[in-house]
Design a protein around this nucleic acid. Structure first.
Length: 940
DNA sequence: TCAGTCACG
DNA sequence: GACGTACGTGACTGAG
């Protein structure tokens, strides 16, 4: 049947896929010969994901991947500068281009290109043909040049952004005009990427404004004399030719002569005989396996052919036999357990993993333990699995048959787990160590594969076991969901039948051991052994202690505050409804936007509406509402309500639920490998974002209290990041100010504006403070302007003057960016490596990456310093009646018996202020300020 | 599950 | 000349 009504054509922008794949992945190479294949790998992954997603009524009947061919097109005939500013294709991408064609063919998808034409023209031609035949078209691309085609059954879909569909309204959002006028806007605005000139000084927003006013580009150009703004009018008249040329360049050619028809694009089933050999040739281990499973065929063997003596680059499988679940042993009696213990003793190491009833270590019960001493042999020791079946909704309370009694097993394992001569290897050992601690076993010494990966690969990828296994072993572990289910019917691990639990649990231990064997020698190669040994590994027991100690939180205080907040909110709601003219959900930004900007039709003080978010809703963030508060009473009420809602839902209500039944305290969990910069992150609950900036919020800290007879003591580093900046960038004026103990923001202001310190006004100081912070974050004129609410030009002037006065800062920023571009990473003073894979990306992502690269050494060095202090702290305070409870990036919170406060402060201060020594000699002093009191509000 | 918002350093 | 813009996190909510 010929293509027509009821048919659905998918047109995939192949070049976009390639570039996205290239930039999203690290430079992988084929193991056997070093051929670069990162982009091909990503491309195949995207195709596979695409194919997997094609189900249901909307599935395509026809599909093609369209590529560009040749760099010289008919547009170059019209304008020789077209796309002339494009960078050369990266060297390691060029050889991959033909492979992406082959990949498309291998997936059995039509692959089309035409010499002298861009992919966009072919797409346009096919889309128009399909539309005219009465069919439906989806263009899979995010290229705005294609938006002119949308409408009449043609939509675009952005596969990179969760398959977001762009229809006529979506186009309007982007361009401010509907698809038929998109080329007019593009002709005016030009395009820096394609080097389309457009009209100088006119961007998309202005272009849309003009087109909407005059109806079309032609009309606009004919009546250009009517434009009021003189500059704009002149441009349009003078540059008429250039604008008309621009339009010709952006209009897609929908009459490309093609040597095939729509019917040739019919969707074909994947052909394993084509696909599997290709994937095997590329040596994609994980992908081959995944697709083989999906197609239900045997995956081809991929030989392991690392050349002798070569260092396996990250991302390749180790030279080990494959994993085999049938080799796993279920240990059911003490005799069998003892032989595993003997084996571990003999080796001197053992991979160790616990299975429990919950992810919360403070409440989880131990269900079983798995061990692995060498690849290929691992075991699971079930301990407290429940019997299957049984009465009642929740199954049996009896233990399953054939398990070693918990106490016997622990007694047998304890000497091994505590043996200083046997290394216990885990993935996120803090979790397992805390579980075991609650059963009276202190696991030591430990190695942690998650932390090894973090030390080597921060910024590259996350460090969970599934990620590491897939990436480095080419093996996808059994998903826990397969055992526990998900959602409402989820069960706990003790309800999993032992025969199902065994392969899962033993596999985790084996994966951990294999990762350890791979990572251990790599630490040296990447030169992060010291980072791992001195700032990661020793932190595990320290954090475990802090988390188990927890902090006392007074439920009554929180509960009273909750009630007070509720009442205030109820009052505010009445006023809000009154002002809005109707009832609505105050917690819904969408509805707030509709009320303020549609129904009340309010405008910001500058007469404009705010921007819209990704889903087309008005922005209603605090800064917008703050501005809007000058023209109406409603925004202020909403701001007040939001603040109370936040305090109540996130703090006074939620914290109560985190008070542990047994200890009466709140136990957070710190993730060591979460933040790329080396900072910790606190979760469940997050105790690193308890309010302090507003008086109302600050009172929540009154609920964090010391135990009877004790005091809370807080020490925080004063301006640690600015001190580090002064040291790294070697800014003498700042260093002197710190040495003299001056107010650093005032000193900065004085230096910048030539104002003597004793004549400093708060406002000038405030501005200098904003600049100081901005510098740490990779300042931009725009950002500073928005922060200080001053004109952009003025903000830029501040920055220029700042760099003039402190040229070392500018030099630091430039050098850091250069280093990152060259090495794809930056480093802290202590050698922590933070990868910056996006630093050489194009477009706005490069900006983000650059600022992150500037910030990372500063934030990361500060994180290193407090880590070092924390690691030394337990030993330093061991003779004091004190415990370290919390870390909040530059602050440590302790609980100490009354009377010992001053001793603790003196000791902890010494540790903190000397934490950089002896590895780094800072040329600025570190200063820790101290406070104390019955609660956290007083101590701070 | 995502987007929007807002709490912290 | 315009793009989109401070860095790093986690939790809660409404809406699809």
């Amino acid at each position: 049947m010929a293509f027509g009504k009821g048919h659905h054509l998918h047109l995939i922008d192949g070049s976009a896929f390639i570039f996205r794949a290239y930039h999203a992945l690290p430079p992988l190479t084929r193991k056997s010969d070093g051929l670069p294949i990162g982009a091909v790998s990503g491309f195949c992954n995207m195709l596979q994901k695409y194919v997997e997603g094609n189900h249901g009524p909307d599935a395509p009947t026809h599909v093609a991947v369209i590529f560009d061919k040749g760099s010289h097109t008919f547009r170059n005939e019209m304008y020789d500068q077209y796309k002339a500013n494009r960078d050369e294709m990266p060297e390691d991408l060029r050889p991959q281009i033909p492979l992406t064609r082959r990949a498309t063919e291998a997936f059995n998808i039509a692959c089309k290109e035409k010499e002298g034409y861009e992919a966009d023209d072919i797409i346009a031609t096919l889309a128009v043909q399909a539309r005219d035949a009465g069919g439906q078209v989806t263009i899979i691309s995010s290229d705005k040049d294609l938006m002119q085609l949308v409408g009449d059954g043609v939509v675009m879909m952005d596969a990179m952004k969760g398959n977001r569909v762009i229809d006529r309204d979506g186009v309007f959002e982007k361009f401010g005009v509907y698809p038929e006028r998109v080329v007019d806007v593009q002709a005016l605005a030009g395009d820096s990427v394609d080097n389309v000139p457009g009209a100088p000084g006119i961007g998309i927003k202005t272009a849309a404004l003009l087109i909407n006013e005059f109806g079309s580009l032609e009309e606009l150009l004919d009546r250009a004399e009517e434009i009021k703004q003189p500059k704009r009018r002149e441009t349009l008249i003078e540059k008429r030719d250039q604008i008309e040329l621009s339009k010709k360049l952006v209009v897609l050619d929908d009459k490309t002569p093609l040597d095939f028809t729509l019917d040739d694009l019919e969707v074909r089933d994947p052909d394993p005989d084509k696909l599997m050999p290709f994937l095997a040739e590329m040596e994609f281990r994980t992908l081959t396996k995944r697709i083989a499973e999906a197609l239900d065929v045997e995956p081809p063997a991929i030989p392991d052919t690392t050349p002798e003596g070569a260092n396996p680059p990250a991302g390749d499988a180790p030279d080990l036999p494959g994993m085999d679940a049938s080799t796993y042993e279920c240990v059911r009696d003490l005799e069998a357990l003892q032989s595993w213990i003997d084996a571990a003793n003999e080796k001197g190491w053992v991979a160790f993993d616990t299975e429990t009833t919950s992810l919360n270590e403070m409440t989880a019960d131990l269900v079983g333990i798995s061990l692995c001493v060498e690849p290929g042999t691992a075991c699971y020791i079930p301990l407290t699995h429940k019997a299957e079946g049984g009465e009642g909704l929740f199954g049996s309370d009896d233990l399953a048959e054939g398990q070693i009694p918990l106490e016997d097993a622990l007694a047998a394992l304890k000497p091994l787990l505590e043996d200083p001569a046997v290394m216990k290897i885990g993935q996120n050992m803090k979790y397992d160590a805390k579980i075991m601690a609650r059963y009276g076993v202190s696991v030591a010494p430990i190695d942690d594969t998650m932390l090894m990966s973090y030390a080597m690969n921060a910024g590259q990828h996350s460090h969970g076991m599934d990620t590491l296994s897939e990436r480095y072993l080419g093996h996808t572990p059994i998903p826990i969901k397969e055992l526990l289910g998900s959602g409402k019917s989820q069960i706990t691990f003790d309800r999993v039948p032992i025969d199902k639990a065994t392969p899962y649990a033993a596999e985790d231990a084996e994966v951990t051991l294999r990762l350890w064997q791979m990572f251990k020698p790599q630490l040296h190669q990447v030169k992060v052994t010291r980072v791992y040994e001195t700032m990661e590994r020793p932190l595990v027991p320290v954090l475990a202690e802090m988390e188990m100690a927890g902090i006392k939180v007074d439920r009554d205080t929180l509960s009273r505050m909750s009630n007070a907040f509720s009442q205030k909110m109820a009052g505010l709601e009445d006023e809000i409804y009154e002002l809005a003219g109707r009832k609505f959900a105050v917690g819904s930004p969408k509805q707030i936007g509709e009320i303020l900007f549609d129904e009340l039709d309010l405008n910001l003080p500058d007469g404009k509406k705010p921007s819209r978010g990704k889903s087309g809703n008005w922005s209603t963030g605090a800064d917008i509402l703050e501005d809007l508060a000058t023209v109406h009473d409603l925004p202020r009420r909403i701001l007040d309500w939001r603040q109370l809602d936040k305090l109540k839902s996130t703090y006074t209500d939620a914290l109560q639920n985190h008070i542990n039944r047994d200890t009466g305290r709140v136990h957070t969990s710190y993730s060591i490998a979460g933040a790329n910069t080396g900072r910790l992150a606190s979760t469940d609950p997050n105790l690193q974002n308890i309010p302090i900036r507003t008086e109302e919020g600050r009172r929540i800290r009154e609920a964090f209290v010391a135990e009877e007879g004790k005091t809370l003591v807080a020490l925080d580093y004063s301006q640690i990041e600015l001190r580090i900046l002064a040291h790294i960038a070697d800014i003498q004026a700042l260093k002197d100010a710190f040495k003299d103990g001056q107010d650093i923001h005032a000193a900065t202001a004085s230096e910048m504006f030539n104002v003597p310190l004793d004549e400093m006004t708060p406002d000038v100081r405030r501005q200098a403070k904003a600049i100081n912070f901005g510098v740490i974050y990779g300042i931009s004129g725009f950002g500073l302007a928005r922060n200080l609410r001053i004109p952009r030009s003025e903000a830029q002037g501040f920055i220029d003057r700042y760099f003039e006065r402190f040229p070392g800062i500018k030099a630091y920023m430039d050098e850091t960016t250069e280093f990152a571009k060259k090495h794809n990473r930056v480093e802290t003073l202590f050698g922590r490596v933070i990868h910056t894979p996006e630093i050489n990306a194009k477009g706005p992502r490069a900006g983000f990456a650059k600022r992150a690269a500037i910030n990372a050494p500063i934030q990361g060095t500060a994180a290193d310093i407090i880590r070092r202090a924390m690691i030394r702290m337990p030993d330093a305070i061991k003779n004091l009646p004190a415990k370290m409870l919390l870390q909040v990036h530059d602050e440590l919170l302790f609980e100490v018996e009354k009377g010992a406060e001053d001793d603790l402060i003196a000791t902890a201060r010494d540790v903190m202020e000397g934490a950089a020594d002896p590895v780094v000699h800072l040329t600025v002093p570190l200063v820790a300020d101290a406070g104390q009191g019955a609660n956290w509000a007083e101590a701070h």
